Amino acid sequence: MGRGPGVPPRTPSRQTPPTALRQLLAELRGPAAAPRPLDARALAALAANPGCDRRALLDGAGVDKAALASALGSPAPFGQSQFAFMRGHAFEARVKADGGRSLLALLGHESPGDVRVPDLAAAGPEGRAARTALALREATAAGAWALLDHPMLALEVAGSPAYLEPDAVVVAPDGRWTVVEIKSFPMLDGSADAAKVGAAARQSAVYVLALERVAALTEGASVAHTVLLVCPKDFSNLPTAAPVDVRKQLSVTRRQLDRLTRVEDIAARLPEGTRFDVSACSSDELARAVEEVPHAYAPECLAACELAFHCRDRARGAGAVEALGRSVRGELGGLTTVDAVLAAARGEAGDPADPTVEALRRAQVLRTEALACR
């Protein structure tokens, strides 16, 4: 949906001060709505689809996308069951029950001696992030083993701050910091489900990226690019672990996050008064607001974004080839709709010299011949 005549855009601001940015995001979200925290899972999904302004804006503004999707009539079945949530917390508590010694044993250090477990409590996420950075510097300077339980890390994403909370970070005496990711899915015969391990690796890469920002300001510190994935062993509740190399995921995440358009730049293109306030706006108003922000739907979004079903319906309604997948979209070049693709295949449109059009027409001939043989 376009902006429409006579509706002015917001004033662009490349250098929005932090206070003004927070006010802008609060206006978009709704003054009464608490911001939804941007976690590592959301950042990993955002990095996988950096061309989606819709997700970048809504995540940056802290909009509850699950509530927004429900208000739009396209709820997404996201979230963990209460049983799985409780089981995961119980397993994590067991892993950390002895002050970190079991974790260090899983890292290959059976007798680490005293393990420091600094208190990371502070007021608000900004305070916790500052306290975490201080604890990391102190542990590195002390040259001793330390376990940071649920530290808070800060990372700027598209001009908006994000606060991330890994399960744990281990500091070694040589100043190396290692991210620990604790999951409740089992590791059977030394291996786990590849899709779940891949998702954990992408999530951990975001933590490593945030840790590198702190390590760059800490003398003698370095961040391991191999994270420790801790899971239940076989069908028991005993912890086992495997190192996961996240260098590839880290490189992709860094590049994709750098490509993201700044949140204030996206907001500057919206009409004045655009809001995503689920509690105060009607479903029609919310639908119009959402349509003002361009999206980049792909089938992969169904596993990572609460608005995916809404975006899929719109993509299908417009006949967009993106609904068929990114690989298909890439092969079709300038043909952006299903109708245009079919017209080119039938010889009703398109440049015959275009390799894509030529391939489509050849495929149409082969299909006709195959059907005739039946």
Rank of each mutant, 00 (worst) to 15 (best):
residue 279 S to R: 01
residue 279 S to E: 13
residue 279 S to H: 08
residue 279 S to F: 03
residue 280 A to P: 00
residue 280 A to I: 00
residue 281 C to Y: 12
residue 282 S to I: 09
residue 283 S to A: 15
residue 284 D to H: 15
residue 284 D to F: 15
residue 285 E to K: 14
residue 285 E to S: 12
residue 285 E to H: 14
residue 286 L to T: 13
residue 288 R to D: 10
residue 288 R to P: 03
residue 289 A to G: 07
residue 289 A to C: 13
residue 289 A to T: 08
residue 290 V to K: 08
residue 290 V to F: 10
residue 291 E to G: 03
residue 293 V to R: 09
residue 294 P to F: 15
residue 294 P to V: 15
residue 295 H to G: 15
residue 296 A to D: 12
residue 296 A to F: 14
residue 296 A to H: 09
residue 296 A to V: 06
residue 298 A to H: 11
residue 298 A to G: 12
residue 299 P to M: 07
residue 300 E to M: 06
residue 301 C to Y: 10
residue 301 C to G: 02
residue 304 A to E: 03
residue 304 A to P: 02
residue 304 A to R: 14
residue 304 A to W: 07
residue 304 A to S: 11
residue 304 A to L: 12
residue 304 A to H: 12
residue 306 E to G: 13
residue 307 L to W: 08
residue 307 L to M: 10
residue 308 A to W: 01
residue 308 A to Y: 12
residue 308 A to K: 02
residue 308 A to C: 06
residue 309 F to P: 00
residue 309 F to W: 03
residue 310 H to P: 06
residue 310 H to L: 03
residue 310 H to W: 10
residue 311 C to R: 08
residue 311 C to V: 04
residue 311 C to K: 07
residue 312 R to M: 09
residue 312 R to D: 02
residue 312 R to N: 00
residue 313 D to N: 06
residue 313 D to R: 12
